[in-house]
């Protein structure tokens, strides 16, 4: 399944080096994205999902910096390029942005400039990566709008983003991201600001576009429902680190990490007893600036082992290809056995 690997992130670390101290927004994340597949990245807000996306595009704002790791993008001819070594504003990176990787944001309202028409912004995106004259670009833009299911594309081109409804706006945003025909679409909470019906429509649209173009999608969300519907593979993140990774079946039917299990428990189930209290994860996400020592999750973990989880960082356990769990409860056989014993 991993033959068509498009993007490979290895041990990515993005820190914000402010005067007040270092915030480790992303602290060692690894995953692969393959053509035609959808990778879901899930986690609570502030866990570094969005910074991961911005790091891949190399547009992390100051004082953020990628301090370690590799972002390998497989070029069309099959050779990999490490994006980390590229100049962030150099010609190559700019051709990657938009050209190879498209980005869709959470907030379609503010993702478009309020004083430029949709057509203006769309044709700009097209002409940045393709030599077309204005009329041709406009035609292409109208085609794109048709493709994403906007009813009156020609009229919409002359409209401003705030004249569109939320759903149409997000469709226009997807058209914008797909304008230069990228091979990877990064969607950062694409449906969070939309109502449920529109959410489903947008997700359907993304899935069908993916099928047509055998495009890879990296879907960043805090919504496990969205992940269950769309993702093939899943990375669970907590405080800038990966805690578990696997296929969508692995994550939903065989979750290992206590954090993943807690997340899944906190989804309301249809067959739950009426008026039963929904289990929540105790405490709140600490600021990455004050990351707990050892396993970052230990202060909120119901299964934390004192003297171990709060001191030592857990190793990554890889039981199978593409399956990873980062937890003291797993991996080391003896430890795991002793845990089993303690549990029973």
């Amino acid at each position: 399944m991993r033959t068509d690997r498009l993007l490979s992130v290895r041990n990515l670390k993005t820190y914000f080096l402010a005067d007040e101290g270092v915030t480790k927004a992303v602290d060692g994340v690894s995953f692969d994205v393959s053509a035609g597949r959808t990778l879901g990245i899930v986690g609570e807000s502030g866990c570094g999902k969005s910074v991961t996306a911005l790091s891949i595009l190399r547009i992390v704002d100051d004082p953020g910096r990628i301090v370690d790791g590799e972002i390998l993008l497989t070029k069309n001819d099959g050779t990999p390029v490490d994006l980390v070594t590229q100049r962030p504003n150099g010609k190559f990176m700019r051709s990657v942005r938009g050209g190879e990787i498209g980005l869709v944001f959470q907030e379609p309202m503010t993702s478009f400039s309020p004083v430029h028409t949709i057509g203006n912004q769309l044709t700009e995106a097209i002409r940045l990566h393709e030599r077309l004259n204005k009329a041709e670009a406009r035609e292409r833009a109208a085609d794109l709008l048709t493709m994403v299911g906007i009813p009156r594309p020609a009229a919409t081109l002359d409209q401003y983003s705030w004249e569109l409804s939320g759903g149409l706006r997000q469709r226009a945003m997807i058209a914008h991201a797909l304008a230069p025909d990228p091979r990877l679409l990064i969607a950062d909470e694409p449906t969070t600001a939309l109502d449920v019906t529109t959410q489903a429509q947008i997700l359907d649209l993304m899935m069908s576009l993916q099928e047509e173009r055998s495009m890879a999608i990296m879907l960043i969300t805090h919504d496990l429902g969205v992940i269950a519907e769309t993702a093939d593979d899943v990375v669970v993140m907590y405080l800038g680190r990966e805690v578990e990774q696997g296929s969508v079946e692995n994550i939903f039917y065989d979750p290992q990490h206590p954090y993943t299990r807690a997340l899944l428990r906190s989804i309301p189930a249809l067959d739950a007893a009426p008026k039963a209290k929904l289990p929540a994860i105790t405490g709140s996400v600490p600021h990455p600036f004050d990351r707990p020592s050892g396993c970052s999750f230990h202060p909120r973990c119901s299964e934390a082992i004192e003297g171990l989880c709060d001191i030592e960082e857990p190793e990554t356990w890889r039981p199978a290809e593409g399956r990873e769990v980062v937890c003291h409860l797993f991996g080391d056989r003896e430890m795991a056995v002793s845990i089993e014993g303690r549990r029973s």
Binding site: D290, R291, P292, S293, P299, E312, E313
Partner: peptide, 11 residues
Amino acid sequence: MGTSERPPPRP
């Protein structure tokens, strides 16, 4: 061991 710049307060 990955320590952050400022150790967090822990009970």
